[in-house]
């Protein structure tokens, strides 16, 4: 095994192959990033309407709740295939990359909407009342008062989901997107030992995920420090 490793090293560690891996890495990262950023925006819009008090929006709210509950319960792999075949079947010429992005957006929207809803509910209701009395509309209360205070509850878990989606994108190698896992398969198929091909793959995923996990922890600590006093006041007012 070690002999094989030494034999293949000169073939494997070349500039061209390095660039190939780098491109795969960027593909993985951009899929997760596009999916989560768009999912975040959609998640916000979804929560805004889902929590709306307007009576005639009730059917829409039911629909949004159903969306969130359903799309958090479909495996990523199954949904990827479904989107792939549905887009082909109904004549949308989506590239594989975009099939993957659409899948991530659909699932990320549902997950992140739940995080955002929990974050917004965590802001004390007396902030709503106070804004209400000062004639703030619902949208303005959200914009000026509630959302800025809910970041501390939203950002850390949303960031963990982003990292989770980086790892999930490996499943899109099954439909043939050229991301990290596919790169591993490719090198394995041209004769590089699985240990070396998939090992590189593993290392690169780790190199993406681990620093981001650490960054997420730091963001969490910083946000919590910023809002420490805030939490204390809110707890006191619960008595």
């Amino acid at each position: 095994m070690i002999q094989q490793f030494i034999d293949q090293a000169p073939i494997f560690f070349t500039l061209n192959n390095g660039l190939y891996w780098l491109r795969a890495l960027m593909t993985t990262l951009s899929m997760a990033l596009i999916g989560c950023v768009v999912g975040f925006i959609f998640g916000f819009v979804l929560v805004y309407f889902r929590t709306s008090p307007i009576p005639w929006l009730l059917p829409l709210r039911a629909l949004l709740i159903a969306y969130v509950e359903i799309f958090r319960r479909i495996p990523f792999l199954v949904l990827t295939f479904l989107i792939l075949f549905a887009s082909r079947g109904f004549g949308f010429q989506l590239s594989l990359f975009w099939v993957a992005c659409v899948t991530i957006v659909l699932i990320a929207t549902a997950y992140i909407a739940e995080i955002i809803r929990a974050g917004i509910e965590a802001v004390h209701r007396n902030q709503w009342e106070c804004a209400d009395v000062m004639n703030f509309s619902r949208a303005r209360t959200m914009l000026y008062v509630i959302v800025p205070q809910s970041w501390v509850f939203i950002v850390p878990p949303a960031f963990s989901y982003f990292i989770m989606f980086i790892k999930e994108t490996s499943l899109t190698s099954q439909i043939g997107t050229m991301e990290l896992m596919s790169a591993g398969k490719y090198f394995n198929s041209i004769g590089i030992s699985p240990l070396m091909a998939y090992g590189t793959c593993l290392l690169l995923y780790f190199a993406l995920s681990y620093p981001l996990t650490r960054l997420g922890r730091r963001i969490e600590v910083r946000l919590k420090n910023r809002f420490k006093g805030n939490m204390a006041t809110l707890r006191a007012s619960d008595q």
Binding site: N126, M134, N135, Y144, F227, T233
Partner: peptide, 28 residues
Amino acid sequence: TMAMVFQQFNLFQNMSVLRNVMIAPLKI
């Protein structure tokens, strides 16, 4: 025509003191 001051102050925690006082006249 009315303004209310609450037992629990209910200042907007995400805004500075000046911003808290200015926000409603300015934006609303």
